[in-house]
Computed example of a mutant assay.
Amino acid sequence: MQRRACLAAVGTALSTSLAGCSSVLSAFDDDPCGGEECHIGMNRTEFTPAVYEVSAGDTVVWKNTSEADHTVTAYESGIPDEAEYFASGGYESQAAAYEAWEDRGGRLGTRDTFEHTFEVPGTYEYFCIPHEGAEMIGEIVVE
């Protein structure tokens, strides 16, 4: 009887330690860029990471790491006053980006990338037009 109790305890301890290993491995799986040349990935309805910090003058690269179409579109009211507006497709305003999306303008297909250089310190809020209703939003913090 003692042998069975010992084996049960060892089995429980082994299961617990392996569960810990799998959670460590899954933490690495949370990097949608997988070591590739991007900083922010896009899954079905979120930017990963949702908040990204950079220094003034740094370029950020987004990559569509999902099968859905996405955009990277700044909220005009969510960027510093002196900052340059940004949107995939090169639109100069949020209204222009919305209008272009009617014909899929600014679309980032699977594995497509978009980059923007942030010159002005501050907080920049952005979103994905087709998934705005699902609250696919992100934030860049520029120091």
Score class of each variant (00 low, 15 high):
R111A: 12
F118Y: 14
E99S: 15
E119Q: 12
E99I: 09
Y75T: 01
G90D: 09
G89E: 04
E125L: 09
F127I: 04
G106A: 06
F86K: 01
G133P: 05
G78M: 03
A134N: 14
Y98W: 15
D103H: 00
F86G: 03
Y126E: 06
E82W: 00
I129V: 15
W101V: 06
G133N: 13
I79F: 01
V72R: 03
A100E: 03
W101P: 03
T110E: 15
E92M: 01
F114K: 07
R104V: 11
D103V: 09
G106R: 02
G105M: 08
P121G: 11
A95V: 13
Y85M: 05
E76S: 13
E119A: 14
G78A: 03
A100M: 06
S88M: 02
E82I: 00
E82T: 09
G109Q: 13
H116R: 12
A134Y: 12
D81I: 04
E84Y: 00
G78D: 05
T117D: 10
T71F: 11
S77D: 15
H70P: 09
E92V: 02
A100F: 06
G90K: 07
G89P: 03
F114W: 12
F118L: 09
T123W: 00
T71V: 11
F86V: 01
H70Q: 13
W101H: 05
A100Y: 03
H70W: 14
H70R: 12
H70Y: 12
G122L: 10
E76G: 13
T71K: 11
C128R: 03
R107E: 15
C128F: 10
Y124D: 09
P121H: 14
S77N: 11
R104D: 14
S88Q: 02
L108G: 12
E119K: 11
H131R: 14
A96T: 01
G105P: 08
H116P: 00
A97M: 06
G105F: 06
